[in-house]
Design a protein around this nucleic acid. Structure first.
Lengths: 220, 220
DNA sequence: TCAAAAGTGTTCGCATTACACCCATGC
DNA sequence: GCATGGGTGTAATGCGAACACTTTTGA
């Protein structure tokens, strides 16, 4: 049995040097044929976190991912068929682990697709506003969060890490300062391995050390 | 006509050197006779911000006060009579402007009373958790917000300002460093007036300059 | 040998921290 | 004259910002 409020998920990943958001194409009124954030009514006995996890799983096959509440959106006019409150959550997934598994959840939506955050289509409801707010929060907490590492493969180069930061912040960063800051923070483990298959000097690989991160930041 | 979600308000003020929260004593089940955050069902055609403003007005006679959404709380078991979602907001009021006007809103609650945040009674629902989260947010945004000035009279001394910071952060601050930082920030206007009616050296009075604050922080 | 990206230090200014004494006033 | 809070400066340290060249590698 359903409640009368929904959750909407802002699901991010990183691909082709850009921050991407997963959108679904609606197959039902209202906003039939529009792109929208994946979202659903929450069940009566279902915790909201479970609902996000369910949607994420049905859409991407992934479980147990970091997720965070953004807030409630309940504008009187946000939904053309009467007032419906939605609670927005955001989560982060690795593009490579997900790409092949993306599938629409139900017949309510026709397809699911990644869009770069800097070139979104028109969106249903107030979903553009939700994404805007989510991005704002993402930017402001970036340096104290594990998010960049959720977006990268286990082993990564410092340049890749910098690209993630630049994609999210929407601006370029100084290479030397960035490296100094990140390496100084002390939660990267330098590997003896280097990149393979590139036609230029191979970069050193690093791993993120969660333990040290939590020890030094105390966050989460 | 009512929706089936509520808003709960965390209403702060500052008195006797302590940060205070306004609580109401419930006169209805569930949680009859318990203290709780002032809250209500939102009307069908009412924006949430309007609802907070309404509650604030009915309880304190104040209008047009800064308020902010904290988030949605919808734990399946938070309400004994079935799942009810609540959206928490926080606002700040000046104790002196409000003190005499405090009154219960409806027969749903018997009385309203200020409690210091460091000595709260047992609370209904998940209201302790809501206050906890609200306080956390308050602390982390304190230095970039106008909140301390919302809590003080128009003209105040630097010591009073420091007391507000200390009460909210729950720790003591170094007087010289605090003054340097605040004065350097550049949005206080030093008046030629001093305190009156104290039995020791009268302190200089200051005013908060909102214009300069927004110019230098860009926030809000 | 060329193209592409990797990798690397220093300087400057500013903010934060720690720390202790004299001053002005009312009673 | 004494109790009470008001008011003040300096040194050490750390962080962020600006800035350009050499090295390595594969093709």
């Amino acid at each position: 049995m359903q409640t009368n409020f929904t959750i909407d998920c802002v699901i991010y990943s990183f691909h082709l040097g850009k921050l991407q958001v997963l959108l679904t194409e609606r197959n039902e009124y209202p906003y039939k044929d529009w792109w929208a954030l994946p979202g659903f009514f929450v069940d009566k006995e279902e915790e909201m976190e479970e609902a996000v996890e369910r949607i994420l799983y049905e859409l991407t096959g992934l479980k147990g991912i970091y997720m965070e509440q953004l807030g409630a959106f309940a504008g009187v006019k946000r939904h053309p068929q009467g007032r419906i409150l939605t609670v927005a959550y955001s989560t982060i997934v690795k593009y490579d682990e997900v790409e092949s598994k993306i599938k629409p959840m139900t017949s309510y939506m026709r397809q699911a697709k990644w869009f770069a955050v800097d070139s979104l289509p028109d969106l249903a409801f107030d979903h553009r506003e939700i994404i805007q707010k989510s991005l704002q929060k993402l930017k402001s907490t970036l340096y104290y969060s594990t998010i960049p590492y959720e977006l990268l493969p286990e082993k990564f180069t410092l340049s890749q890490l910098q690209q993630v930061y630049e994609a999210i912040l929407g601006k370029t960063l100084d290479k030397r300062n960035f490296r100094k800051k990140i390496v100084n923070a002390g939660y990267l483990r330098e590997l003896s391995e280097v990149q393979k298959g590139v036609s230029y000097r191979a970069a050193r690989l690093y791993k993120f050390d969660k333990r040290k991160f939590f020890k030094t930041t105390g966050v989460e």
